[in-house]
Simulated scan of single mutants.
Amino acid sequence: MFESHQLTEDVSMRVLHSDDAAALTSAYLRNRAHLARWEPLRPEEYYTEEWQAGDITRRLAARDAGEGCPLGLFAGDELVGRFNLAGITRGPFQSAGLGYWVDSRYTGRGLATAAVREIARAARDELGLHRLEASTLLHNTGSQRVLRNTGFEQIGTAPKYLQIAGIW
Score class of each variant (00 low, 15 high):
D55Q: 10
A86H: 15
P43E: 08
I56S: 01
Q52N: 14
R148L: 09
C69W: 01
R82S: 15
D103C: 02
T113K: 11
G108E: 02
T89W: 13
L60W: 02
G68H: 04
Q52W: 09
Q144A: 14
G128T: 11
E67R: 02
R63L: 04
H139W: 09
E50M: 05
H139E: 12
G108R: 03
R37F: 06
A86T: 15
Y47M: 02
L73F: 01
Q52D: 02
G68Q: 03
L73I: 00
W38L: 14
G54D: 07
T150C: 12
R117Q: 11
L111Y: 11
E133R: 14
A114N: 07
A62F: 01
S143C: 06
R117L: 08
Y100R: 09
G108T: 01
L127Y: 12
L41D: 06
Q144E: 12
I56A: 00
A114W: 00
H130R: 10
G110N: 08
E118R: 13
R90K: 06
E49I: 06
V102A: 11
R42Y: 04
G110D: 09
L147R: 05
W51E: 15
T107V: 15
G108Q: 00
D77C: 02
G128D: 12
P92A: 09
L73P: 01
W38Q: 08
R131H: 07
G99K: 06
Y47P: 03
A53M: 07
R121I: 04
T150S: 13
A62M: 03
G97A: 09
E67Q: 06
T141G: 11
L137Y: 06
A61C: 07
I88S: 09
C69G: 01
Q144F: 08
Q52E: 03
R59L: 05
V116G: 03
L79H: 03
G142H: 09
E126S: 10
V102M: 13
R105L: 14
T113V: 11
A53G: 10
G54E: 07
Y100D: 06
E44N: 07
G99F: 12
R82H: 13
V146H: 10
T57V: 07
D103G: 05
T141L: 15
A62K: 04
V146Q: 08
A36E: 14
G87T: 14
L98F: 11
R90M: 12
Q94D: 10
L137M: 11
L132Q: 01
G72P: 02
I88D: 06
G72D: 03
E67K: 05
L127Q: 10
G76V: 03
T141I: 14
R63S: 00
P92N: 11
F74P: 00
E118K: 11
T150Q: 07
R90Q: 13
R131N: 08
T57D: 10
G54V: 02
G87N: 14
A36Q: 15
N84E: 12
Y106V: 04
